[in-house]
């Protein structure tokens, strides 16, 4: 077997290991499924009565946003699991084996992609229950989920990088929450960014979360001509911009996480 085949085979082995872990300890999965449900109920019924969106129901506007929020939250499982494994001896075991060193991270992120897929499915079902509907072609819907999951995979590498730099689960949890809140709320996920005060609006318009939310809205047909047209490039071309963000995150964070992994385990 050549090096690439080996790396793929090892990656699959580690992915299976991580999927088994999720099956045996479903508490983490429970968390990422519950959180979006709570968000939907809270925003759809508590704030929904106060937030109005021109031309459509708030539910229709909200659900694509919740998809992205869910993805950002679920991706943190990657980082959290890595910090937990770092506390144990299992990485030492892996490092004495003739396996591809990259398999640990690819296996982890691929397993978490499955987690993310699960929570997106749950989200879609809850969305349909509260009145969310798609108004686009099946191809666009599939593309919509694909764009979401690709970004989710890339974002897993971001949390992996943060986790490998911080190394303990407690510190990681604190920092990850601190990072994800502005990312999620300084965006158009819950409200139209055009209504935010000046400087925050600039941040929200360029926030990759906004780009992705806009992409989901466009691909699921949850937009309305009555909504003010966005005036920044990423929001005008949200699908292309989302894919660019995904590529950029992968190009930066895959090598970075790989390097930090080597550093973290050889202490």
């Amino acid at each position: 077997m050549n090096a690439l085949n080996l790396a793929i085979a090892d990656g699959i082995t580690i992915t299976k290991r991580n999927v088994l872990k999720i099956k045996r300890a479903p508490d983490l999965l429970g968390g990422v499924v519950m959180l979006p449900i709570v968000f939907v109920l809270l925003f759809a019924y508590v704030f929904g009565s106060m937030i109005s969106v021109p031309g459509m129901s708030y539910q229709e506007y909200l659900i694509p946003g919740i998809f992205v929020v869910t993805i950002v939250q679920s991706a943190q499982i990657t980082g959290y699991t890595l910090t937990q494994d770092l506390q144990k001896g299992i990485f030492d075991r892996f490092r004495t084996l003739p396996m591809a060193p990259t398999a640990v991270l690819t296996g982890q992120t691929l397993a978490d992609l499955l987690t993310n897929f699960t929570s997106v499915v749950v989200m879609a079902l809850v969305g349909l229950l509260v009145g969310w509907r798609v108004h686009s072609s099946p191809a666009e819907v599939v593309l919509g989920f694909l764009v979401l999951l690709l970004f989710a995979y890339a974002f897993s590498w971001v949390t992996a990088t943060v986790a490998l730099a911080l190394r303990t689960p407690e510190v990681f949890n604190n920092i990850a929450t601190l990072m994800s809140f502005p990312l999620v709320f300084l965006s158009n996920a819950f409200v139209d960014s055009a209504r935010l005060p000046g400087p925050l609006q600039v941040v929200a318009d360029w926030n990759p979360v906004s780009t992705l939310v806009q992409a989901a809205r466009v691909l699921f047909g949850n937009t309305d001509p009555a909504l003010p047209a966005p005036d920044t490039w990423p929001l005008q071309h949200p699908v292309a911009a989302s894919l660019l963000w995904t590529a950029l995150l992968l190009v930066v964070f895959v090598p970075l996480a790989t390097r930090l992994y080597k550093k973290a385990v050889s202490r």
């Binding site: 290991r17 088994l20 872990k21 001896g89 075991r93």
Partner: peptide, 15 residues
């Protein structure tokens, strides 16, 4: 070409 066992058990809890 090696097998190794460390001082603390390097096994996966959930498996």
């Amino acid at each position: 070409r090696i097998g190794a066992s460390g001082q603390y058990a390097a096994v996966d809890e959930h498996l």
